[in-house]
Design a binder for these strands. Structure first.
Lengths: 215, 215
DNA sequence: CGCGAGCCTTGACCCAGATCAAATAAATGT
DNA sequence: ACATTTATTTGATCTGGGTCAAGGCTCGCG
């Protein structure tokens, strides 16, 4: 029966769904909300290694210990598949494997683009890059265009941004203020972002790829 | 016939096999030698996003523009497969897709571990981590144990190390000197490294995973 | 409405690693 | 061996972003 292999779970913002080292008895895909994948060193230094948006996949067939913490940054609904039956399904249905390979390759490319960001970009470029990513990925859901401005909600706290960008929260805050001062973005509250000129933001991100569609 | 789908090519150290943006008419796997995958920004800032050792796979079925430069750091022999027939093979032989997914997931994990390194580790930890990786991966080939010391050749120049670690070559050089001064490694010439106490090196790498076998 | 508890911003200062600049040391060719 | 070129080390100095330390918002709650 389907309901023995597939079920839904929801989590509150801030909740850690999975701890690194946990035994994973399911793989899952995000239905609604946003979560982070992160690694923590013994001394507490934290690096977020992935942002999960709706439709993103979590977990790895053929491994049963979780390698990262998975934390809900907004309320999250996940669609979980018990691992055993999912793996059988995977073996019997080549298309799923095909699709999974495709998704994994996309994630690998995203990870590598992030490596460039972490290794070589300035704090300002990092922030601009993150805003571009969030604008693009949140676009399908909540983004609005109002009088030519792109407007969206930043789901991450300053600290979560810092952990994803390899910065401190103070630096994130300062660079947000600086981008605002320079008219690249404007803020209402701390989370509502509007971008009057998206090309300008792309320039600030220092990105060779314009728009980020698959090269 | 096999020879229409599969063929070998060799490249000299320093040669760029593939430029980002090139049309790729093949996928390939490394037979001998070491290559880097790297991204370059317009202003020249370079980040290496992957090291390719023998048996590693290059290229992505279902995409025909290369996303990164691939550069031989030693002389390299590659085993190339023309893309069209390879993709057909992939569709008709589920095991290959299976294996490819496995390899891609491993690369994704490696990329994410490198994100932690790039975002959060100090220069000294970065160098130590790189030495650990090279020692582990080069182990199968050329590493020797001599009187309890692990001895191996570093295939990368200081600049290539810097590009992989998100540092400058001067910092790489200083940290190598510092690790040597502190007895963590010793150097004969600039490339022959010996490690008297591998656990000490692991500590210096600040790594939670000891040894790096799949968690 | 006022009180906390989280977030977020801002300022002052510091330091790891970048930059600039020589001086060596290795490789390569003749 | 010698000249040339290419790596590497080392020193001096600078700076982007970290650290430490106040305050300010904001939102939920009594």
């Amino acid at each position: 029966m389907l309901d023995t292999i597939k079920y839904y779970r929801s989590f509150q913002a801030g909740q850690t769904l999975i701890w690194a080292g946990d035994r994973m008895e399911f793989v899952a895909s995000v239905v609604t909300g946003i979560a982070t994948l992160s690694q923590v060193m013994e001394d507490g230094r934290t690096q977020t290694v992935g942002l999960l948006f709706p439709s993103d996949f979590v977990g790895r067939p053929g491994r049963d210990l979780a390698p990262y913490d998975v934390t809900a940054v907004t309320d999250v609904m996940m669609c979980c598949f018990r691992k055993k039956p999912f793996e059988e399904l995977l073996h019997s249905t080549p298309n799923i494997g095909q699709r999974l390979l495709e998704m994994t390759l996309d994630e690998l490319d995203a990870a590598r683009e992030w490596m460039l960001l972490l290794g070589r970009k300035t704090a300002r470029e990092k922030i601009a890059s993150l805003l571009v990513i969030v604008a693009q990925r949140a676009a399908s859901l909540e983004m609005r265009m109002a009088k030519g401005k792109m407007v969206f909600d930043l789901p991450l706290t300053r600290e979560a941004m810092a952990d994803y960008l390899g910065l401190t929260l103070e630096t994130v805050s300062r660079q947000m203020s600086s981008l605002k001062r320079d008219g690249v973005i404007s803020l209402e509250g701390t989370r509502h972002v509007s971008v009057p000129d998206f090309d300008r933001l792309l320039e600030e991100a220092g990105d060779d790829t314009d728009g980020g569609f698959l090269g």
